[in-house]
């Protein structure tokens, strides 16, 4: 084995190459890998955040949907109640109106009947006197029988 200056030359070359690699090569790749690692970590974190956001948005939308359904149901119920109420009211009013019309008609009928009675009553004494005169064959003193005639009219 011929050991000679080559061994020193190789030692120097080794030192220089190690220095060069340490100074100019290694950091380039270390930085790139570091940067990529960071980017990936950030990406994953952002994805996790987005997923969380999506979840909360879904939850929120479901809540809102539920709320909307509940309020729609409330509105419908209210409307139903209101319509029933309106119908009720209308029915009541109609009944009242009908009663009123009936009462008015009854009153009118009664009045009519009363008037007819009054008229009848006014004429009953005349009819009675005329009848009696026919029966007796002579005039009846109306004034003398005034009380009896009035009593008869009132009994009618």
């Amino acid at each position: 084995m011929d050991i000679n200056l080559t061994i020193i030359g190789q030692s120097i070359a080794f030192a220089v190459f190690c220095w060069f690699c340490h100074r100019y090569v290694w950091p380039l790749f270390a930085n790139v890998l570091e940067e990529r690692k960071r980017t990936i970590a950030e990406g994953l974190e952002a994805a996790a955040r987005a997923e969380q956001k999506l979840e909360s948005a879904a939850r929120q939308s479901a809540e809102q949907l539920d709320e909307a359904k509940a309020s729609a149901a409330g509105i419908i119920e209210q409307a139903n109640r209101r319509s029933a109420q309106i119908i009720d009211e209308a029915r009541q009013q109609a009944q009242m109106e009908a009663e009123r019309i009936m009462l008015a008609a009854q009153a009118e009928i009664e009045q009519e009947a009363n008037r007819a009675k009054e008229e009848l009553r006014a004429q009953v004494s005349l009819i009675a006197v005329a009848g009696a005169e026919k029966i007796l064959g002579r005039a009846v003193d109306q004034a003398a029988n005034e009380d009896m005639l009035r009593q008869l009219a009132a009994e009618l």
Partner: peptide, 28 residues
């Protein structure tokens, strides 16, 4: 004796080392 240098192996050694480092640096 000792006062000699192997031009061939030394030269290839340096050339290969330099080629590797310069190439890696370029890529880097």
């Amino acid at each position: 004796g000792f006062m000699a240098i192997h031009v061939d192996t030394m030269g290839w050694s340096i050339a290969l080392g330099a080629a590797f480092l310069l190439w890696f640096r370029r890529v880097g």
